[in-house]
């Protein structure tokens, strides 16, 4: 096949905006966003689980929308605003979802957690989840091999209710301790 004999194309220059910082990298067109985030920008919060779009561990937000970064070519995201788990909260200032995952014990090994949280951030912004049943359906793209689903749904539901009724206390780090 002639296409097998082709030489590798030259790397291309791409500007990625990740968590508010601009990064200029030279990458092969075949590099996925997940690999560039982890291997070039050393943002290893986004996890490589299946690398096929089936597990959701690599979930990030692109222009505010949750997507599987393993199925995104980095070159196609030149100029887009990318948010990873590193841009969601910090150990000193947890995002309410992060605090809720702690208080509800919503993980065991933690490998799926960054993807779960990025996905939940995206889902709550989408505004189509109105209770546990819809949370389960709309989070079905995030697998948890430890089986923490019950607590994951409870954590997300608590934050969802707090957002709907601001008088309810949103989860905080203090609550986690």
């Amino acid at each position: 096949m002639p296409q097998d004999a082709r030489s590798a194309p030259e790397p291309v220059a791409v500007t990625l905006s990740v968590n508010g910082e601009t990064h200029s990298v030279e990458i092969p067109p075949s590099a996925t966003l997940l690999d560039v985030l982890r291997e070039r920008l050393h943002l290893t919060g986004s996890k490589k689980g299946c690398d096929q779009g089936q597990c959701g561990a690599c979930t990030v937000l692109i222009d505010g929308r949750r997507v599987n970064s393993c199925l995104q070519l980095a070159v196609m995201n030149d100029g887009r605003e990318i948010t990873t788990i590193e841009g969601i909260g910090t150990p000193e200032h947890l995002h309410p979802l992060q605090a809720a995952f702690v208080t509800h014990d919503a993980f065991q090994c933690g490998y799926c957690t960054p993807g779960q949280i990025c996905s939940a951030v995206g889902m709550l912004d989408e505004g189509h989840a109105h209770g546990p049943e819809e949370i389960r359906e709309l989070m079905s793209g995030n697998l948890c091999r430890c089986g923490a689903y019950t607590n994951i749904v409870e954590a997300i539901e608590e934050v969802r209710r707090a957002r709907e009724a601001p008088t309810l206390k949103a989860p905080t780090l203090e609550a986690a301790e």
Binding site: Q52, L71, Q72, M76
Partner: peptide
């Protein structure tokens, strides 16, 4: 290539082997 959700997956499996992608 547009969303790429199937094409990129198939390229990883070596099922699709395009020489050029037009975004």
């Amino acid at each position: 290539i547009a969303g790429g959700t199937n094409l990129v997956d198939l390229m990883k499996y070596d099922v699709e082997r395009p020489g050029r992608l037009v975004d």
